[in-house]
Simulated assay, not measured.
Amino acid sequence: MQLPKATLLTALAMLAFAGNSVLCRLALDTTAIDPASFTSLRLISGATVLWLLVTLRGGGAFSHGSWPSALALFAYAAGFSWAYIHLDAGMGALLLFAAVQVTMIGTGIVRGERLTLPQQAGMTLALLGLIALLLPGSSAPPLPAALSMLAAGIAWGIYSLRGRGASNPTAVTAGNFLRAAPLAILLSLALLQSQSLDSQGVLYALASGAVTSGLGYAIWYAALPHLRASVAATVQLSVPVITTLGGALLLAEPLTLRLLLASAMILGGIALVLRKPVAKG
């Protein structure tokens, strides 16, 4: 694969990941769909697209993945949807990204990895940025929604850690989506009395699952073999930025000083941590 093609695939994957936040916020802010239905439709459509991709390649999706990973995927998707009832797209993406990275880096530290001094400074800066983002004030996110998104990020971090080193990540993701979809359906059935659907909301949910989740992950896994690990980690710093711009353009969400400063602290701090491999202690 030529570098320009790898660059294009990477850019498309980052746009897809940002698109998940924008589509979810669009659905839950501008349509009547409820978060449980959005979660179910997203996971079902994502599972369908990934199953088709794996099947067309001659593989069996359900033979890959696991129920613990599917549970983490479901927890991420549900927390993500409930958070976006009240969070702006950019704010939600920043909280999600911060929680994912802190979970993965923190797990590495617990397992015996050691951060260099610049990496320690970066981790401290990122945590201070997260605290600054959540401190009470007129532009602070609603705490329950923020906690829901942080929980979603922790779940996604766990899911990502469990999937490290998978020999066929697309098939593993397909198997996990196929297992997570019934969990989401059960949740929708449990909350049937509060179910609310409309055509636009359903369309956003299906697009989130089929395009920005299913195809987005497939594109990302096609790009990954052609990226150094440090590049793959660092390029994901663009997702909250793209999401914030998308929220401002499509949803007229304000770019507050708190969000901009916290974004610089969190993303800058994580960039310092990802700049070089973690030293073994």
Rank of each mutant, 00 (worst) to 15 (best):
A279L: 13
W67S: 09
P35E: 03
A6L: 04
R114S: 14
Y84E: 05
F74Q: 06
Q236R: 04
A180Q: 05
G65T: 09
W220K: 06
A271T: 09
P142H: 05
Q236G: 02
A262Y: 11
A146H: 06
A77E: 06
V100A: 01
Q101K: 08
V239F: 04
L23G: 02
A229Y: 03
L249F: 12
L125I: 06
P254T: 04
G65L: 06
I219E: 04
L215W: 08
L41M: 14
L43P: 06
I44N: 05
A190N: 12
A180H: 11
R57F: 10
L197P: 05
L250Y: 09
A27V: 08
G163I: 01
L272I: 04
A132I: 10
A210V: 06
A132M: 15
A171S: 10
P169V: 12
A181S: 15
V211M: 12
M104Q: 13
A252H: 14
L227H: 07
A145Q: 04
N20H: 00
P136T: 02
L178V: 09
N176M: 01
K280Q: 14
S208R: 01
H86S: 06
M104V: 15
G269V: 05
A264Y: 04
L197F: 12
A146L: 10
L41C: 09
P240S: 10
L249C: 04
R164K: 14
A121L: 14
L227D: 07
L161R: 05
P225A: 08
V172S: 07
A98V: 02
G129I: 11
A93L: 12
A83E: 02
G79L: 08
G157H: 01
A181I: 05
G59H: 15
G247W: 04
A93R: 04
T212Q: 02
A181C: 07
R162Y: 00
S45N: 10
L12G: 02
L224H: 08
L96T: 02
L8P: 03
W51N: 05
G19F: 00
I158T: 11
L267F: 03
S213P: 00
A166R: 13
L23M: 05
T256E: 10
G281Y: 13
L215C: 12
I85K: 08
L187A: 15
A190Y: 12
Q101N: 13
G214V: 05
A83D: 02
F80K: 11
A166E: 15
G209S: 09
I242M: 03
A155R: 01
I109A: 13
L261W: 12
A98R: 03
R162C: 00
P136I: 01
A98E: 01
A32H: 12
R111G: 14
W51H: 13
P142T: 00
T256I: 11
L206P: 05
F38S: 09
F62S: 13
L12Y: 01
A11K: 01
A252S: 15
A151L: 13
M14Q: 09
H86M: 00
P182T: 13
L52N: 09
A99N: 06
L260S: 15
G92V: 01
S148A: 15
R275Q: 15
I270S: 10
S199K: 02
G129L: 07
